[in-house]
Design a binder for these strands. Structure first.
Lengths: 340, 340
DNA sequence: GACTGGCACTCTGTCACGGGGAGTGCCAAG
DNA sequence: CTTGGCACTCCCCGTGACAGAGTGCCAGTC
């Protein structure tokens, strides 16, 4: 038994209506709202099959039908085309992102924009350190035995870390250190740096080796190990739209998940394919998000990807619209980064 | 007609019970749980007076009493002593804050700690630029006509901003610029800088004045005008404790308010008195937070204050405990900053 | 063979009703 | 001023009845 065209059409209609009205949809309402050209009874038969196949279900006997996660999945994969953005939306994106003064600003504007356009929770990952390269390293003396290490990446991120030195260092020596690390590391991809950092220590004159070793360990920590990914979040208030109906009664697990950076990174940061990724309900590995869907994609200058962004909402979401918006915003942000 | 001691005692008992049980408290339960030494009937008379005075109210006829905002206010001002922290809490604070590697880390740890200890929403303001002074300014060439300006403050904040130059600048000139701005500005309080920046432009050789003017305008913007305050937020999931009961049914307005940095700053950033500030329900100027209370205080190294922190929760909160925790955390953070 | 109209059935949501319970206000007495 | 007693009010909750929506199935039609 397979799904012929009309059954698919019925599924699409159910998804669209349910997303819009948030109420189980019945056969009669369906034929009234869509030109299906058949009677409610026929639709009912189709519905019975769709339910058998697991694409829709009844909250209770003699209620209308509601799409299952599998139903949404089928809808997304085969039944929906990506909506084109309205000119108004395009303008909104441009207006919003223009005039950002630095990376922080770009990220914050982006996340708010995304939340606003999709009316959902938005997450934007800062350009990943691991995917950036070093533009410049700066050493600023804080006291005689302390340095502030400032790293600037080609994506505009600025990371700082305090370095505790084993002993006092003269300011000329700091300049020397600064020159050395920059010669060695500037322009390098983050992933290529560890052996170079080791080389820095090895090549160092013995009397300075201690100092350099300290610096090197902080460098390694900053560059790779602790490679801190940062995130921005916006639009949590959108979770309350649709009342208590979405998210099976309580926002708690969702809010909890949103507080865990690790979890968010997992959601957004899975960047292998350059395409948009949609996770629907149960497809999420995180238990707390079993009643949510996530639409995410990578962004970056040109074809390269330096970070992820996406939105999270109820499984009952407007997938075509959301996907379109997420993609468009990612592209704009990529272009913006390319300009720098 | 005034409030004698027993009436105050009754009010205290009502607040304590209500905070704990979240249910309107009646006269009978009250005398059972507290050693008031009088009968329920007497307590009822006292309650009638307290209600008349506006400190408590009945959700409906023949229900127990619930404190009003004014009741909480009186409780906070006159009836509660600040609870001492338990050793476990002290240890938790120390363990949590130790090992922070940089300012970002300190702020993030602090805000999570605060949310965890108070089981409420926590907000921590980064050290305010306006209250810091310049430690060092760095200019990093991005291209021939673009510089990255990096400012490091004595509180450890690092701000960056892109500078678009009117024309190409040689790298020697950049070094020269760098030296000049540092000579002039390093060590200065942020609020004293504007005339100095102007001075920089005036003293500049005519052929470089254009470049310097560009830099100066970005500097001014970064230092004062756009003096961007940053915040960290944690514990929003705690809003869902107590179900839909707190916050009159919907979290929406509260979540919305929490998304507005401006609003949060208003809550937390009011730092004139070095004491802890408590805003209860209607005392909040922000309409969206009329059903919430905010406990906030300033923090900073030694006696100076460089930023604010605090928590937000339902008016029905454990004020003594919350106040104690907020103060303690602020003190620890201050000490931590003093060490740098 | 696929579609349709009709019909009986099921389940929800809601409303009215009523009793139990908690709590109050008031009064008269100690 | 305090207390015990009592009548009263109102919420909460379980029950039952009812309308409405929607289904499943069957027999008839094209």
């Amino acid at each position: 038994m397979s799904l012929d065209d009309r059954k698919l059409e019925v599924l699409r209609a159910i998804v669209e209506d349910y997303v819009e009205t948030q109420e189980p949809v019945g056969s009669k309402a369906l034929v009234e709202r869509h030109q299906l050209g058949v009677s409610p009874a026929t639709v009912r038969n189709d519905m019975a099959v769709l339910e058998e196949e697991g694409y829709i279900r009844q909250p209770h006997t003699s209620a209308g039908r509601v799409p299952t996660d599998a139903g949404y999945r089928l809808f997304v994969d085969r039944l929906s085309k990506v909506k084109a953005l309205s000119p108004a939306e395009r303008r909104a994106i441009e207006r919003f992102l223009i005039g950002a003064v630095d990376l922080d600003d770009v990220v914050h504007r982006t996340v708010r924009l995304l939340a606003q356009l999709t009316r959902q929770v938005a997450v934007v990952q800062y350009p990943s350190l691991a995917r950036s390269s070093v533009r410049h390293l700066e050493l600023v003396p804080i006291s005689t035995t302390r340095l502030m290490l400032v790293m600037i990446t080609d994506t505009g991120r600025v990371e700082q870390r305090l370095v505790e030195l084993p002993g006092p260092v003269a300011s000329d020596d700091v300049l020397d250190l600064r020159r050395k690390v920059n010669e060695k590391l500037a322009g390098q991809r983050m992933s290529d740096t560890p052996p170079l950092v080791q080389g820095l220590v090895d090549e160092c004159a013995p009397d300075r080796r201690n100092t350099m070793a300290c610096l090197a360990s902080v460098l390694l920590e900053t560059l790779v190990e602790r490679s801190e990914e940062r995130l921005a979040l916006a639009g949590t208030a959108n979770l309350t739209r649709g009342g208590v109906l979405d998210f099976q009664g309580t926002l708690r697990p969702v809010l909890e998940a949103l507080e865990e950076e690790v979890i968010l990174l997992k959601l957004i940061g899975d960047l292998e394919p350059s395409t948009t990724r949609v996770r629907i309900g149960d497809e999420n590995e995180i238990d707390n998000l079993r009643s949510a869907s996530v639409v995410s994609t990578g962004y970056g200058p040109g074809a390269t990807i330096v970070g992820g962004l996406g939105v999270l909402g109820p499984t009952r979401m407007d997938y075509p619209g959301t996907i379109a918006t997420v993609r468009a915003v990612a592209r704009y942000v990529g272009d913006l980064l390319a300009q720098n």
